[in-house]
Design a protein around this nucleic acid. Structure first.
Lengths: 135, 135
DNA sequence: CCGTATCCATTTGGATACTG
DNA sequence: CAGTATCCAAATGGATACGG
């Protein structure tokens, strides 16, 4: 038998209709929405339950109205976030994760928490890198 | 006792020295390196073992030399990737994940695979969104 | 309150050319 | 092969003003 060499994104890998490592794959776009600068934090913030626009804005430190709005539209279009608008005055709009969004958010939060827990190591690595970089 | 309301990034949460949801936290920067446009794919590609620069470039579809170089420098500085250079001619440089990088890559790949597996749902959600958006 | 629209500064990113 | 340097196009992001 021939050796099968498999790696993430191997174009020869059977049964993988979508491959984020391939430039043209639509999953690439969704990956960018989810892992983008504000996408990951937005999903993470919503993982605790539904939030209104300005609540969300306060939870995601530093995001502008424009960027939060764009991020939410992209996530809603991908079916990860549901937007619930009440036609009251003043208007009230709640954002919440869909079941798919919850699954994605769990994985995103796992990464975020891991990195937060590893920051002492990361900061040490940076010091070491910067010190060596001088030579 | 008072109710403790905890959510991702809650600034009142004790025992969390690093909080990616806070604008000034250094973990925010590392999160962006790892989840950035090329960071996630680079980590994923390296999860199968060490790769040379141009091998990596071929695995990560669409990345330019400049962006791959920048991405690798950032990940190396954060202690997630190790660079092994042989002073031969022609030069040979191998990149591999550190133990920390492996842990991060596992979580990143979990997300990537989940999204790849969910693309049919995502694409359906987009159709539905675009159809409704017309009204 | 919940956004959209517009303008503008900054950043990011790709193509190309070039070096050790 | 493994990058760096440069130039320029495009995307990002903030501030402000405005509308439902």
């Amino acid at each position: 038998m021939t050796t099968t060499r498999r790696y993430p994104g191997d174009p020869e890998d059977p049964g993988l209709p979508y491959n984020a490592f391939a430039k043209e794959c639509p999953s690439r776009g969704t990956l960018e929405h989810v892992t983008g600068r504000w996408g990951a934090l937005t999903l993470g913030a919503l993982s605790g339950g539904s939030l209104r626009f300005n609540e969300l804005r306060r939870r995601v430190g530093g995001v502008s109205e424009k960027m939060l709005s764009q991020t939410l539209h992209a996530l809603e279009r991908d079916g990860l976030v549901h937007r619930e608008a009440q036609p009251t005055n003043p208007p009230r709009v709640d954002y919440e994760l869909t079941p798919l969004g919850h699954e994605a958010a769990r994985r995103v939060l796992s990464l975020i928490h891991f990195l937060e827990d590893s920051m002492d190591d990361v900061l040490l690595a940076r010091e070491s890198y910067d010190a060596r970089g001088a030579r």
